[in-house]
Design a protein around this nucleic acid. Sequence first.
DNA 1: GCCAACGTTGGC
DNA 2: GCCAACGTTGGC
Length: 135
Amino acid sequence: MNYWLIKSEPDTYSWDDFVKEGKSMWDGVRNHAARLNMIAMKEGDLALFYHSNEGREIVGLAKVSKEHYPDPTADDPRWVVVEFVPVEKFPKPVTLKQIKSDKRFEDMALVRLSRLSVGPVKPEEYDFIMQLAHD
DNA sequence: GCCAACGTTGGC
DNA sequence: GCCAACGTTGGC
């Protein structure tokens, strides 16, 4: 089981949109590092759902429901999508500010590679986030 | 193959 | 709205 973090701008696609649809095909990723992360995702892996730009907080938890396949919106078949389903909306969203002010997260991909849209999360980082989200 | 210019992302 | 970080493009 691996853990991930996926970013979305809520103006474009928010957690509420995700819940309304019941599942999401994560398309439009055109970054090689993000692509490699998506390819590494296995069905059942969990992903923190982060709102970038507006909100700047982790708002909920998603689960990989379908592993990578070619992105139908891309010209190049090497780009891939992954499908997610919602698991849980956090009672207390975890803000970027909280994360940045906590030493336990200083090596987190979200902090160190702020522009990466699909990044890995370590098991211990996942545990800390879940504690903060349910505190 | 190097690197300057430019575009995009995303935090502030 | 600004700018830092990073990726991509194109001239040489």
